[in-house]
């Protein structure tokens, strides 16, 4: 099976990044069709376990998008996400998983073009590395 098209799961917070993704759509910006978004109210809802789960069940990469630091609708949710996921990422690296597979970024409701750029970059990153087989054991 041709697996050169990476599967990417994204978690977007309702207030900024999901709205940014909506704006990318409203503005008809084109980006690769590899990403599937799960909407959460805040990036702070993203349990690192969800990220690991996505990689385990077949995602090639996970993108977590929140509001810019300082802009979280719930004040500090994105700071928590950043901390939680940077630890997760270190741990994953230690386990031999490419760091590109977990990416955290920020995008505001008015940054449709930024959303499209981030998705394009993350997709390119994941195309560069081989498909995720780590959990295929």
């Amino acid at each position: 099976m041709n697996n050169s098209e990476p599967k990417i799961v994204a978690f977007c917070c309702n207030w900024c990044s999901y709205a940014g993704a909506d704006l990318a759509g409203t503005s008809r910006m084109q980006y690769p069709a590899n990403l599937r978004i799960i909407r959460v109210m805040c990036s702070g809802r993203v349990n690192p376990v969800f990220v690991l789960k996505a990689l385990r069940v077949g995602a090639d990469g996970v993108l977590v998008l929140g509001c810019h630091p300082g802009d979280c609708h719930y004040l500090t949710g994105n700071y928590r996400t950043r901390r939680r996921l940077s630890i997760t990422m270190k741990f994953m690296e230690y386990m031999g998983i490419e760091p590109e597979r977990i990416q955290v970024s920020w995008c505001s409701a008015s940054e449709g073009s930024r959303f499209a750029e981030v998705v394009t970059e993350v997709t390119a990153d994941l195309k560069r590395i081989s498909p995720n087989r780590l959990f295929n054991d």
Binding site: M41, G44, R45, V46, N47, P48, H73, G77, R80
Partner: peptide, 8 residues
């Protein structure tokens, strides 16, 4: 407010 930070 339902942000979910505590659940995590």
């Amino acid at each position: 407010k339902g942000c979910g930070v505590c659940a995590v």
